[in-house]
């Protein structure tokens, strides 16, 4: 049986790990919201600054879950953690930036173009962690617990024992991000079913 053993929720205003708010957006800051989190949490990974917003969000969510659940980084061979991500607007936010890069007389930006695919975030997380496991990025109309449950069910045949799952919706300033780690037989976690997944996704942490 599968259990959710760590999760991170990130929207326009707050970032929460396992239901506890760890960071709130400072609207007066000169830094972007994701850079605020990066600095507050004292991450050191200069490549973060080159990433597009989808990859930055995936980086932050994955690293915060790793800090809260040490098994993510320590308990699995390098190809037994699958990544199962989805969203509804693909890489549209970055697609529009790339499109603007060659409007008028300017030249298309290669450094933006390489981020115009939604699965690049999977590559970034794989590179950071040296994870050689299975990858999936799907486009769905809405967050759909059944997609993750079905896909987790079928990744076992490829040898995956755990999975980092994600809903990464970022478009024109809107941020709706939910990453969660799934393990087998770790009963300290929340049993993975559609109801629990929807409830973790919809839970709004209280304002302290």
């Amino acid at each position: 049986m599968n259990f959710v053993t760590g999760y991170c929720r990130l929207n326009e205003d707050f970032c929460a790990v396992n239901g506890e708010v760890i960071s709130r957006r400072d609207v007066d800051s000169e830094d972007s919201w994701f850079k605020q989190i990066y600095k507050e949490q004292e991450f050191v990974y200069p490549k973060f600054y080159k990433m597009d917003l989808l990859s930055q969000a995936g980086f932050l969510g994955a690293e915060l879950i790793k800090r809260a659940n040490l098994r993510v980084a320590g308990s699995y061979p390098d190809d037994e953690i699958a990544m199962i991500f989805a969203n509804s607007s693909s890489s549209t936010d970055t697609d529009m930036r790339f499109l603007r890069s060659y409007e008028g007389n300017s030249s298309p930006s290669p450094s933006l173009f390489v981020y115009t695919l939604p699965n690049i975030v999977l590559g970034e997380i794989a590179i950071l962690n040296k994870w050689y496991g299975e990858n999936m990025f799907a486009i769905l109309p809405n967050f759909e617990p059944g997609f993750y449950i079905n896909y987790l069910n079928i990744t076992k045949s490829g040898g995956s024992k755990a999975a980092l799952c994600g809903w990464l919706e970022i478009l024109e300033g809107k941020v709706d991000v939910f990453l969660f780690f799934v393990e087998e037989n770790e009963e300290t976690g929340t049993p993975l079913n559609a109801e629990n997944l929807a409830s973790l996704f919809n839970h709004k942490p209280s304002i302290n």
Binding site: S90, T92, N119, F137, I139, F147
Partner: peptide, 28 residues
């Protein structure tokens, strides 16, 4: 550019009266 997948998938679904929502895989 703002409706790369959802609209076409919904149109396909309506055209053929599909029983289940199509899934799109976008992995380069």
């Amino acid at each position: 550019i703002k409706d790369q997948f959802a609209g076409p998938a919904a149109a396909l679904s309506r055209h053929f009266k599909l029983a289940n929502q199509p899934i799109t895989v976008s992995n380069a």
